[in-house]
Amino acid sequence: MEGTALVRRTANPRPRGPRRFTALLLAAAVLAVIPAALPGAAAAPAAAAPSSPGDEGGTKKLRDALESASKGHVEATTKLTNSKKRQRELGTQLKQVESRIATLTREVGVIAAESYRRGRLTPISALLNSASPQSFLERAAGLEMMAQRNDKQLRELAESLDQATRAKNAIDAEVREQQRQVEVIARKKRDAERALAAVGGNPSGGLISANSPLAKPAPRNSDGSWPRESCSIDDPTTNGCITPRTLHALNQAKANGFKRHASCHRSGGGGEHPKGRACDFSAATGGFENVDASGGDRSYGNSLAAFYVKNASRLGVLYVIWYRQIWMPGTGWRGYNGNGDPASDHTNHVHLSML
């Protein structure tokens, strides 16, 4: 019996040590291959970053040109807005000063007319004509008050005229500042159009929807400009970092129903990703697929792109790229062709770059 039992134990020995580990690896490999070999089986899309990491569909020279043009446009627009605001404030101030000048001019005119009517009445003659000591004192007090009043009015009139002159000069300066910024905006638009001409940058229909939800505005400086930010916040989509403004834009998209896979920071490549100022949003539900989005996936991308366009000034958007098109504040939607693959043509994901 003992011999039989020994034979049974050794007839089918269990793999041990390295042999057992090898057998398990082979079994896992077989299980992984079987679903792909079955008819009609489809591999699940991987939630990975788009192919050609860091490639936003153009050369570094193109990306630098677009960044410069878009930033220049936003900065000039902010300065133009501030200048117009200052001009309105100065206009209100000028109206108030001019109203005060009109009142003072009338009062001074009354004094001058009275002096002329009385034949240039002097203080000495006024006092000599006093009928009594009491009248003399009353006239003396009246002359002192009149002198103080006249002096005050004349001084106020001179100051008001000076204020009016300064306000008018300041308004003229603001008008010149506005003309300069309008010229900067026009120049930045031409720069962007020249840069985009190399990648089919003709005007396109674009994606704009009045029904897109409004995002919560990101913080600005007191003068309306955007604060400088570094890559200082943990990126919830990768192991890298992003700027606070980029995180705000990402969270606002999620808060408004855009919750499909996103990838922001990249350690290598060009563009805004390594700076923590860009995010890619997959059009497909399962992640980035190396195919052109269609149907509901394309509709999702359309809606997301329109959301960021509508809220560009609220969030600090530098540009948006989607489905062979790019939107910039100074140009609107323009054609933007990449290298012919879904990643560089941005037909499988929406690209967002931030100021």
Rank of each mutant, 00 (worst) to 15 (best):
R120D: 08
R120K: 12
R120E: 05
R120C: 05
R120F: 06
T122W: 03
T122R: 14
P123L: 00
P123S: 05
A126V: 06
A126M: 11
A126K: 02
L127K: 04
L128G: 09
N129A: 15
N129K: 13
S130N: 05
A131L: 03
A131R: 14
S132L: 06
S132H: 10
P133C: 04
P133H: 12
P133W: 12
Q134W: 05
Q134A: 13
Q134I: 10
S135E: 13
F136H: 02
L137M: 12
L137Q: 10
E138N: 13
E138C: 04
R139D: 07
R139P: 01
R139K: 14
R139T: 10
R139A: 04
A141E: 10
A141W: 09
A141L: 13
G142W: 05
G142L: 11
G142N: 13
L143I: 08
L143F: 08
L143T: 00
E144L: 14
M145W: 12
M146Y: 11
M146H: 10
M146T: 03
M146E: 13
A147F: 07
A147R: 11
Q148L: 13
Q148E: 12
Q148R: 14
R149K: 09
N150T: 12
N150A: 12
N150H: 08
D151S: 04
D151L: 03
K152S: 11
K152A: 12
Q153H: 12
Q153K: 11
Q153L: 08
Q153W: 07
L154K: 06
L154Q: 08
R155C: 01
R155Q: 06
R155T: 10
R155S: 06
E156Q: 11
E156A: 10
E156M: 09
L157M: 05
A158P: 00
A158Y: 01
E159D: 07
L161M: 00
D162M: 01
Q163W: 00
Q163R: 06
Q163Y: 01
Q163F: 02
T165D: 07
A167M: 03
A167P: 06
K168D: 03
N169P: 01
N169K: 11
N169E: 14
A170Y: 00
I171M: 11
I171E: 03
I171A: 09
D172H: 12
D172S: 14
A173Q: 15
A173P: 05
E174N: 07
R176C: 07
R176A: 15
R176N: 15
R176I: 07
E177D: 15
Q178F: 04
Q178H: 10
Q179P: 11
Q179H: 15
R180L: 05
R180Y: 10
R180C: 01
Q181W: 15
V182Q: 15
V182P: 02
